[in-house]
Design a protein around this nucleic acid. Structure first.
Lengths: 227, 227
DNA sequence: TAGATTGTTAATCGATTAACAATC
DNA sequence: TAGATTGTTAATCGATTAACAATC
């Protein structure tokens, strides 16, 4: 049954894909991996979307941006769709990443299992504090920030993660950019400015909690409005 | 100049506010706090939006969902707008939170400064592993998960943070819900199902990196398409 | 007054949903 | 064949942007 007729159309990124679509793609992928682990060989747009709170039409539309991955009457083969989504997201290749800032959060990121499983390898950590430098944490060597340019070149580091205080985030970002990094994941609670050729994603943990708080109070407010 | 004519209309949450608006509200708040620290007394929709990559019209529209906070010809007073947004988000009050899972990430969350500053207090941590229980981490006592219901009641815990492996996330979520928690911030890389009266926000660190990788490759793909 | 900036309405743009012929 | 499900088009819905009278 494992036919190999080329099912990868890949109409390429056209007028640009909505950002919301891409974030759902990651959720589909995660869900599909769970489905495979649970022994499912195939799924449907209805099944896949249902578990995530999306409609079947949404799932099909999202995937249709990138090609034809399903079988009418059957649905999607989980393993095939996993491969396809990984290729779309770019995680079919390995990404070398650097972490800057070996504090509480930085250490946790170095120990985070999820990264390796999804194609990311943190190959070097950096800190401006001489005392934190020299050893290894979770198998990742810690260097002085000054050594970043050289190590970035040698390890072909393409991504950087910023886990330093807000006050230092912009200067660290500048140094990452100068070292040729193509994308930055910023955990510092501050807006950083990057040149247009460098991608960025920001994660502010306090803001996530804040969003949760709003969701809670707005439910309470709704309940109060119409009793 | 500090008049106190009641400027808080608060037309209340009506047909429900778009989620995107709320997440921008958090960014406005963060930016305003930086502006105040830099000595700015007032700002404008153009100024505030510009630093974040939003248009002035967007900023005004977002705020208009909740009331009239600006002064035509002047702009917004930073301190007033901060108070207003905090009230909207619900972070003008203190929120007691519980953390479940004292691993790498959990420990980092306990030490995270940003939470306290924004109205959140992690009052108790929990773990199923007897050996991790008993002491304090970053000043937060660590209890056995079995003690959750009692402590949740005594401390009036309204929010829970899940930092356990994916396999345990759903069962931990169920226990948090049973203990009366109203919102859950889930760091486990899995979809959890909650009753409709409990709010949830999910943060998957690997997915954030994945989104970054996509942003990087799609720039490269665009560049390749039109040379 | 002239200049700046708001809040709001109308116009535009984009994203989601519904529906259905085509396919297995 | 009957049932299931896709990919896609058209219809709906929602969100962003532009424009401008009102205000300071």
């Amino acid at each position: 049954m494992s036919d190999s007729k080329s099912k990868s159309d890949t109409p390429a990124s056209e007028s640009s894909v909505p950002k919301a679509v891409v974030s759902r793609l990651s959720l589909y992928l995660r869900e599909l991996e769970h489905l495979v682990r649970d022994g499912h060989a195939t799924t449907s747009s209805n099944h896949l979307g249902g578990r995530l709170g999306f409609t079947d039409a949404q799932v099909r539309k999202d995937l249709a941006y990138f090609g034809h991955f399903g079988y009418p009457g059957i649905g999607y083969r989980c393993d095939e769709l996993i491969v396809a989504i990984r290729r779309i997201l770019g995680t079919d290749q390995q990404w070398a990443a650097a972490l800057v800032g070996v504090g509480n959060l930085g250490r946790a990121l170095l120990g985070h299992k999820g990264f390796q499983q999804r194609g990311f390898r943190v190959v070097a950590a950096f800190d401006a504090d001489q005392r934190k430098v020299g050893g290894e944490i979770e198998g990742v060597p810690v260097y002085l920030l000054n050594d970043l340019p050289e190590l970035a070149r040698n390890h072909r580091i393409r991504l950087g993660m910023i886990a330093v205080p807000a006050s230092e985030a912009q200067s660290v970002a500048d140094r990452l950019v100068a070292s040729g990094v193509e994308g930055i994941l910023n955990f510092a609670p501050v807006t950083i400015t990057l040149p247009p050729h460098v991608a960025q994603v920001g994660v502010d943990l306090a803001i996530e909690l804040e969003q949760l708080a709003f969701a809670v109070v707005s439910r309470a407010r709704e309940a109060a409005d119409k009793p």
